[in-house]
Design a protein around this nucleic acid. Structure first.
Lengths: 221, 221, 221, 221
DNA sequence: GATGAATGAGGGTTCATTCAT
DNA sequence: CATGAATGAACCCTCATTCAT
């Protein structure tokens, strides 16, 4: 009545391995969780889209919470793989690697906006999930840190750079752009993330001359 | 068995105006919503903490959804006020203003971590809420943009700077630090946000010499 | 927001006796109960129409149920008074009295459609109310029975007439017409109850010649 | 403290079709709605009697209101079927048909007193329900009208008879008897509806001689 | 006396989870 | 293995009733 009618033929008909089937479900579920709040995503809605039975879901996940958790796992796993690949390349330098990582990340976010939305957004709320979220976050930032440290050692970046703070800031900025593309980006009707410009911003700073900003400012709080 | 945790004296006993009472509820509620997912926050839990009756809640909010929405409104209103104040100061220059704004924002976030978590995190999911979230975000970034543009006009910042992209990136970075304080920050058992360092990062860039980063990189996606 | 705004000046301002005020409330309340189901009538709605405070209601009625009950009492009292008046007239005969009673009843029903709906309809449901409903019903029918018996004694009606069955049937028919005016009645845009025709129907019967209907039919059930 | 009254074996255990199960629920629910007011019937009470789970109810009805509505539908459908059958018989004349219909109706009412109470009583309150109630009422009266018109054409009934008014009055009288059996009827401890006598009343009228009643009475209201 | 803020029991409804088929 | 009917805990919300002012 509500929704048109979907997926009359279950993906289970295709001969998929257990893991392939699970991942298929996860990706579909991620779509839903990215669109709606956790409590607004119903398993009934999910199975209708998937074209499988209610009970079948429970062969892959012990409960709704775990399904949700696995979305994070899969998303992290995939993104971390991409970052790792870039980190381990030996054909390009640190600056190029940063750009590459930024592109990879932006690309991944746009491609899996749903999963990444869940990853980025979700929520230092549920204690047990929270720890995993934080660990994942550290792992991702760690990838960037590696490259930045390499740059420092190679004399490309300032030697006194706080690599963690920088990496975290860069990813925060990239995340902001990817999740909320700036108005001007939609110019051609096509969203173009300005990843490269963001990286450049971090490389060069914004000051006309390398002036010292707010040095006189005292400690706060 | 149930937590006998109970506010002994309801805040209603104190003579508060309607708005004061409402704000009190909002702040308490923000605590809960920052800790738990929307569906994990029950009105029963909220009233136990507030020490008021179920029905009383409905004098202030027509339903749970609206309560949630008002958390955003109040948080935004307060933060925007702070930023506005800084923007309109005439005693300091753009760089100092940026620092000031960063401090204000970081301070506010830490002080009202709960409300801000809700604001930052909340979820481009619910359509009608979503639009408000985006509008609020634009208003906040707009404050920073004002200052940056001023800096450009004054010749402090590069004239060709994409002010929006910059402002958004800065806030993304500040947000990342405030929400997830870096491990090293907790050194003395005391969280010290390195807001100033982040601003400096953006001022000066990270390169040893003002080199051009990844200029050779082609278009992505 | 929902409803325009009513009765800003309470009827309490006028100097009314306790009973007058109570009756005023009852009549207003009857309007609501005739329009909506019991559970859809809220005391909040009632006091807004009345322009009085919530607590004031409880000076007149111990609870909602009793208010409802008193609607019946008042309605019955008024209608019974009318019927009694006709019964005790000595200037007209039984047939005219029946007509008169029919007119009175129809008139009253149309005038106080709300109260009578409650009276007629309501409901062999609530046990304690039920008994009162039945008693009231018997009292009303009893009025008609008095007149019919008079007619029998005077030789106007058949001596073997089952007066109760007849009276009950007549009132059933009148009730049916008053509550659901037949389509043809609305001809002139004006509802005209054909009370007189109904009485005539009962007087003369419908057969062309006074034939005996279905006499061969056996007992059922 | 709570009634441990509990249907030991749910009717769901028996292999019933969806419609059979739904009708079973409707009939049970009709019992409750006939006994108590709408708001006094709780779904909790219903499921305890039915011996099924709360959620199961919602496989058959989208909400309480619809359940209520379907009681009317089922009751009307069944009664109309009976009346239709009589109308279409060719072995008996109009008078006998009227008796037959009266018996059918009385029989049905007593058998399904609950459903019919709901049908007869239910409340011209809820607008959307109301229209259906009126339509149903017209359909039932229409059945009687058919027979009466046949009688007029056959010269059994007066040719100038207002068939609708008559039919409506007859049903009003029958309804009054069926719903509130007269005291004398309970004589033998057994309720005996005097359906036939009521029909006879309508056939012959009550006047000793076919006198013209209250012809001098003017228009009222 | 009149008020309406505060209350909380109670009900309708949803939906994750189970389990017999 | 897959299914979906059945379940019932849990939650939001209403509104009659109370009582301090």
């Amino acid at each position: 009545m509500k929704e048109p009618f979907r997926a009359p033929t279950s993906f289970l008909k295709q001969q998929l391995s257990f893991d392939e089937a699970r991942n298929h479900i996860i990706e579909r579920a991620a779509n839903l969780f990215a669109e709606r709040r956790y409590d607004q995503v119903t398993l009934d809605g999910l199975i209708r889209i998937l074209g499988i039975g209610k009970g079948t879901l429970y062969r892959f996940f012990t409960n709704k919470e775990e399904l949700y958790s696995q979305i994070l796992d899969l998303g992290h796993e995939q993104l971390l793989g991409l970052l790792q690949e870039v980190r381990d390349r030996s054909d390009i330098g640190p600056v190029a690697k940063l750009c590459e990582m930024a592109f990879s990340m932006a690309h991944f976010i746009r491609l899996h906006l749903d999963i990444y939305t869940v990853m980025a957004i979700e929520e230092p709320k549920d204690k047990c999930t929270s720890e995993k979220i934080l660990r994942y976050r550290k792992e991702r930032i760690g990838m960037v840190v590696c490259v930045v440290e390499q740059g420092c050692r190679m004399g490309v970046f300032r030697p006194d750079l706080d690599t963690w703070l920088f990496s975290q800031s860069l990813m925060g900025a990239l995340w902001a752009e990817a999740l909320f593309p700036a108005p001007s980006d939609e110019a051609g009707g096509r969203i173009v993330l300005r990843t490269q410009e963001i990286v450049a911003l971090f490389m060069e700073g914004i000051c006309v001359s390398p002036g010292v900003p707010g040095g006189e400012k005292g400690k706060q709080e």
